[in-house]
Simulated scan of single mutants.
Amino acid sequence: MVVTISQAGSGTGAALLSNVTWETLEKLDADLAKTGAHLTYLDGCLEIMSPFYEAHEEPKKTLSQLLEIYMRMKDIRFYGRGSTTIGMKELGARKEPDESYCLGTRKSIPDLAIEVTVTSGGIDTLEIYRRVGVQEVWFWEDSVISVYCLRPTGYELVSNSELLPELDLRSIEFYSRMADQYDALNAFMRSLK
């Protein structure tokens, strides 16, 4: 087996490997289990991302808490799945979303996956989610949310969430940019009353 390593982005702590079998992926997953590394796999390409840092984790947590406040205040039943690994060998795809949710009922595949992007490059995340069947994917980058909805031909960039059509995404972006997370969450909650 030939494995080549390249940087997925400058200073990101990510490595992109090619020609990786599913069996090698599973072995690496077991070997790296206690390191906090995140593995993304698509058709023999494996991206290994080192444990996330503040520029990723804080916005991810703020965004997920804002979304959860909204769903609770609007009585929308949801089940947080966090970064539970989705995908399988038969699909040739596997991913750990930054956050994910099932709406209405618990399901094996989340309805909504959220990706907080602080670097570019790497594996086509939307292709993984398409194969798995995630209905909606949000990318948060530079405090802007881009929403992609699954169609028969692939994902389509849309202006609003179709799973949460009444949610004002610009409001979520605004509160996610506030300097203090605690104040942002409280201010958002007040705005919904």
Rank of each mutant, 00 (worst) to 15 (best):
G104I: 12
W22I: 12
N160L: 06
G154P: 06
L157G: 00
T40Q: 00
T105P: 08
D183L: 05
L25N: 05
M189D: 07
T105H: 12
E127Q: 12
P59H: 04
L126V: 07
I109Y: 07
G44R: 05
W138N: 02
K61M: 12
E162H: 13
S18M: 07
N186G: 13
L16W: 06
S176P: 00
Y175W: 07
A8Y: 05
V137I: 15
R131T: 10
S159A: 14
R177K: 13
K107I: 06
L17N: 08
P165D: 06
R77V: 10
D31K: 13
G82C: 07
S146V: 11
T153D: 03
S100H: 12
G133H: 04
E127W: 08
R190K: 15
S50L: 09
V147C: 05
R94E: 08
A184H: 03
Y148W: 14
R131S: 11
V147R: 04
G104A: 07
L25K: 07
L66E: 00
C102D: 08
E136L: 04
A8P: 04
L25Y: 15
L185N: 07
G11H: 10
A55T: 00
I69Q: 03
R131V: 06
G82T: 03
L32W: 09
I128A: 04
L150M: 06
L163C: 08
T117Y: 05
R131N: 08
G80M: 01
L17S: 06
I123C: 09
E166V: 01
L150V: 02
T62N: 14
R131F: 07
P165N: 14
N186T: 11
I76N: 06
S108P: 09
E23P: 00
A93F: 01
M71P: 14
E162T: 13
T62C: 13
T24P: 01
Y70V: 05
E23M: 00
T35D: 08
Q135W: 00
V20E: 05
A93N: 03
I86V: 12
A187N: 08
S6M: 15
V144T: 05
T12D: 12
L63Q: 03
L25S: 06
E96N: 07
T117G: 05
I76G: 02
T85P: 11
T84Q: 10
L17C: 02
S108A: 12
T117S: 11
Y53W: 11
T105Y: 09
E54S: 01
L39Y: 15
L126S: 05
R190N: 11
V134F: 00
M73K: 08
K60P: 00
K61C: 04
V3W: 15
S6F: 15
Y41T: 01
D180R: 05
S83F: 05
T153Y: 01
G104N: 06
S161M: 11
R106Q: 13
S10Q: 09
L185S: 08
K95R: 14
E96I: 04
G87N: 01
M88K: 14
I123N: 10
S18H: 13
C149G: 04
K61V: 07
G92R: 11
L150D: 00
D31C: 06
A187F: 00
T35F: 09
L16I: 13
G121K: 12
Q65C: 03
T153R: 00
F52R: 11
T24C: 10
Q65N: 14
E162M: 04
